[in-house]
Amino acid sequence: MTFSFSSGGRLSPAGRAAYLGVTAAAAFGLSYLELLIPMPMLPGARLGLANIAVLTAIYLGGPRDGVILLISRLLTAFLVFGSVTSLIYSLAGGCLSLAGMLIAMRTKSLSPIGVSIIGGALHNTGQVIAAAVLMGRGAFGYYPMLLALGAFSGAVTGSMAAGVLKVLRGKKD
């Protein structure tokens, strides 16, 4: 899939490496940033800000970039925060979310916001399923709230990603 900023032209391999590096760093930075925002009602829930970077990446570069971003996001978070259980939850949520978003993109009937809503909802769904596998059916008790929260935060991050995409793509529909 071609990639071009508004100034036009494809990226060289070095340029592509730089672009992915910056986006991955942004994803990690966002992961860290969202830890500073507590959610009073549902302890432990997160906004999923890193999805802004993932969403931008898949719109600009397709599924492969999405996978690269997902893996780098999981690895950097694990290396820095060092929790295996956390990695498992994020892996489950991230994979389900990415798959869903790629499918949603394919249908071409949603804007990035809609894709992100699906991504957010699926991310939390994956996490709950992983938690249930690990510790039993008790984990499902939180699911209704997490599903709603995931969809909402997806709408928020999707809007932000849409703004980023508009800038990066230049004058395009």
């Binding site: 009937s109 949603l110 804007s111 916001i113 809609g114 809503i117 699906i118 969809a151 909402f152 709408a155 999707g158």
Partner: peptide, 9 residues
């Protein structure tokens, strides 16, 4: 598309 987004939400 935005209408579809809203429907999904």
């Amino acid at each position: 598309r935005l209408r579809a987004d809203f429907a999904v939400l």
